[in-house]
Design a protein around this nucleic acid. Structure first.
Lengths: 232, 232
DNA sequence: CCGAAGGGTTGACATATATCAATTGATTTG
DNA sequence: CAAATCAATTGATATATGTCAACCCTTCGG
C-alpha cells in the first residue's frame, strides 16, 4: 500500500486515535485491491470476513428480496462500510458493488475484533462511528415514513446543493436510476417528480440541477435538521 | 431503587460486564420514576440529558414532521433507549411517550459518557448494543423499501407468532392503530390488510390472531432472516 | 457512418395507499 | 345504566405510485 494511502486511512476518525502498534498490525493483515466497475464485492447473507475501506471510486450498498432490489446507501472515499457486521461477527445485511473503478482496502474482521478488544481508543472510535451510522439510518427512516416521494426529492436536492457548496446550480452525484432507488421510487416516478418540482423553481438539464427559487423550494421541502443534517 | 430492580438492570448486556464500582457509580446518579400512560418522556430535538431504561410498562418511540407522525419502535422491559444520542451528546432524533403506566430509570448522559471513557468492558458492551440497534434499523428499512404493506403485515404476524411461542394463535402486543403506524400505513389500510390475508388463512378477532394455514402464509410472506430475524 | 445498447423520458393504465365520512362496537365515566 | 369516548371498521373516493410500452437521446463499437 502506498504511503499516502496508509496515511489517509490513518486519518479516518476510526483509526486516528488508536495506538501506532495496533494500527500497523491492522494494516499488515490488510490488502488493497483495484476493482473494475460493477463488481459485486460482498453479498448479503455471507459471513463478514473483512472490514472494507473505499480508498477511491464509489460503492453502492443494496439489498434484495423476492426479486426486488433497493439501493440503501452509497459509500464514497475515504470511509469504511459494514462495520456493524464485522463487529458482531454476523452476516452482511447488504450487498455491495462498485459503481466505478474503485480501490478498496480489506481488513480481516477477526483482526478488527482482536484490536478492538485491546485498544480502548479504537473501541471508543468504533462506538462513535456506529452511533453516527445508527443515527443516519434513523434519519433515512424518518425521511421514508414521513415524506412523500416529491418531498424526499426536494430535500435531497437541498442536501446535495449544500454538499456541493451551496450555489444555485450543481451536479447530481448519482445516476438517476440509482437516485430513484435510494429515494425509494421508480426511475419513471423520479422523472415525474423532477417535473413536479418545476413550479418551485427547479430546472434539470441532464445531471445538472439549478435551483432558481431557493425560498420557494425550501418552503415546499421544509428541511429539518433532525432528518436532513447528516453531521449531527 | 429496590434491590431486585438494581439486579435486573445489572443483568442487561449493556451493564453485565462492567466493573462493580462503575456500575454502582452509574446507579448512584440515576433516579427511577413512575409515569402514567401517555406521558411524553422526551421530545425530539432536545439535548440528550439522560439514558433511559424501561423497567416496566412500555414506551413508544415516534417522530414527527410537518404535522405527520410515525411510530419508529416500541421499547419493552428491560431495555434502554436513545443510547446513540447519549453517546454522541447529540439531540434526540425521536420522541418517546409511555404507552401505559411505566417505571423508567434515568441515568445522566454525562455519567454514561464518563464511565464509558474509563471502563473498556462497558465501552465494548456499548459497541455491541449499538451494532445491534444499527442492524435492526437496517432490517426495518429493508422491510419498508422492499415490501408492500400486505407483505409487511404478513411478516410481522409471523415474527410476532414466533415471539409468542410459535403456536397457531397469539395476541398482538400492539394497539392496531400503532401497529399501523409502525408498519408504515394508516389504520384503515391495516384493517383492509388483515382482510387481505384471510385467503392465506389468517383470522383476526380483536387482538387475537390465528394462523390457520402456516405454510400458505409463509409462502406468501417469504420471511427472510436478513430482514425478520431480530437476533442476528 | 451505422446500429446496438442503455439510460432517460413520456403516456396510458393498473394498483396501492390515503383520505373522508359514516357506522359499529367496546370501554369508560358520571 | 346511559352518555360519552375512542378504537376499529367499512364504503366511496382521491391521490400517489408502480407498471408497461414506446420513444428519444447519447454513447460506443464496428
Amino acid at each position: 500500500m502506498p504511503d499516502s494511502e496508509y496515511r489517509d486511512i490513518r486519518k479516518l476518525d476510526l483509526f486516528t486515535h488508536m495506538a501506532d502498534d495496533n494500527f500497523t498490525s491492522l494494516m499488515r493483515g490488510a490488502y488493497v485491491q483495484n476493482f473494475p466497475a460493477q463488481i459485486e464485492l460482498i453479498t448479503e447473507g455471507e459471513p463478514s470476513d473483512f472490514l472494507h475501506i473505499v480508498i477511491s471510486g464509489s460503492v453502492d450498498l443494496f439489498s434484495s428480496w423476492n426479486g426486488r432490489e433497493t439501493s440503501m446507501a452509497t459509500v464514497r472515499p475515504i470511509s469504511t462500510f459494514i462495520l456493524a457486521a464485522t463487529i458482531k461477527d454476523a452476516p452482511y445485511l447488504m450487498s455491495a458493488r462498485t459503481l466505478e473503478k474503485s480501490r478498496i482496502a480489506l481488513i480481516p474482521s477477526q483482526d478488527v475484533r482482536a484490536i478492538f478488544d485491546v485498544d480502548s481508543n479504537f473501541a471508543r472510535a468504533i462506538v462513535t462511528e456506529l452511533a453516527q451510522c445508527y443515527r443516519s439510518v434513523i434519519k433515512a427512516q424518518k425521511d421514508l415514513k414521513l415524506r412523500t416521494s416529491l418531498e424526499r426529492l426536494a430535500n435531497y436536492l437541498l442536501r446535495q446543493q449544500r454538499h456541493a457548496g451551496g450555489g444555485a446550480a450543481f451536479e447530481l452525484d448519482f445516476e438517476k436510476r440509482r437516485l430513484a432507488s435510494v429515494l425509494g421510487m421508480t426511475p419513471e416516478n423520479l422523472s415525474r417528480a423532477f417535473k413536479g418540482l418545476q413550479p418551485y423553481g427547479v430546472t434539470v438539464t441532464g445531471t445538472r440541477i439549478s435551483i432558481d427559487n431557493q425560498a420557494d423550494l425550501e418552503r415546499f421541502a421544509k428541511p429539518n435538521p433532525l432528518i436532513d443534517d447528516f453531521s449531527t
